[in-house]
Design a protein around this nucleic acid. Structure first.
Lengths: 157, 157
DNA sequence: TCGTTATAGTTACATATGAAACCATTTGCA
DNA sequence: TGCAAATGGTTTCATATGTAACTATAACGA
């Protein structure tokens, strides 16, 4: 019989996680804080949810997307998009037509009213982003840009 | 393969937001992707939610906290903490006593069973963090650390 | 010491979210 | 063709989450 070793592993020294230095946790805090700050700006004022705003933002850039394409570009799932669109169309902020030659697809565009909202919200969002970036110096800003670019899952780029 | 759609609006007119280069959006995507990946590891296996895991993580570091103190250290609100604790106590993963001299406060600790779970989950979480960091070189890693530290709201540090 | 105010924690309600089932249409291919 | 499989989108249902109201206890001040 081979030399008996002692139950070598002293019960894994509980090594607790230090949340405040744990990257995923930090990301989550920073992200939620920032998103909430922005949302507070328009949520109440325009009765517009975060998901709805995201949908509007992509429709501002791309004409005639289908719901699936919106989902891709917002990294939201199709159910969330479907619901956001239902509200946006209902509120007259998005026009929805049916695709010629494929009756399953919708063809989406911001309406006049949608553009009017967009043109108010977009600058507010940008202003908040600027506030966030002001906490960093120029060098840190450019590193952050580079780093996030690397960390973004490819399908969201 | 359909041709990629190009932006069609003259930015001068409506200045649409480019989500994929919008910092708060990027943060949200990266954060959700990472958190989800970690949660997938333990969620099903231990029937443990993200909020519950966070509570366990702080109780692993600090003995006898009150619910309010847990809330502070997890950046969760007290309702979320209350609910997480209800499940954890019910599952026998956390022991809850009443504070001597202040009957409003609870005194919380991980139970044996709680520690057993903690000791399995913590290494998994760390491994995922490592995977994330591996996408960055050493220099980027240290910048990220520095940057997040600056962006964290002070009360979460 | 009493009454007001503050604090710890839970409960209730309304809304948000995700997974899976579902319907309609289109595609692939025997 | 005709029919199974795939796709776009919506609905359903079960949970999760946030806000406000509520209970119990403690602290404060006249």
């Amino acid at each position: 019989m081979p030399a008996k070793r002692q139950p070598v592993r002293p019960p894994a020294e509980h090594a607790p996680l230090e949340l405040e230095r744990f990257l995923p946790y930090q990301l989550s805090i920073v992200s939620n804080t920032v998103s909430q700050a922005i949302a507070d700006d328009y949520q109440r004022r325009f009765d517009l949810g975060v998901t709805e705003w995201r949908v509007m933002a992509v429709l501002a850039r791309f004409d005639g997307l289908s719901a699936r394409e919106v989902a891709e570009r917002t990294a939201m799932d199709k159910v969330a998009v479907s619901r956001a669109l239902a509200r946006l169309v209902e509120a007259g902020r998005v026009d929805r037509a049916t695709h010629d030659g494929d009756k399953r697809r919708s063809v989406l565009n911001l309406s006049e009213a949608g553009w009017a909202i967009h043109d108010q919200v977009a600058p507010m969002a940008r202003a908040r982003e600027r506030e966030l970036l002001e906490k960093l110096d120029a060098e840190e800003q450019s590193w952050l840009e580079r780093i996030l670019d690397k960390l973004m899952p490819p399908e969201s780029r």
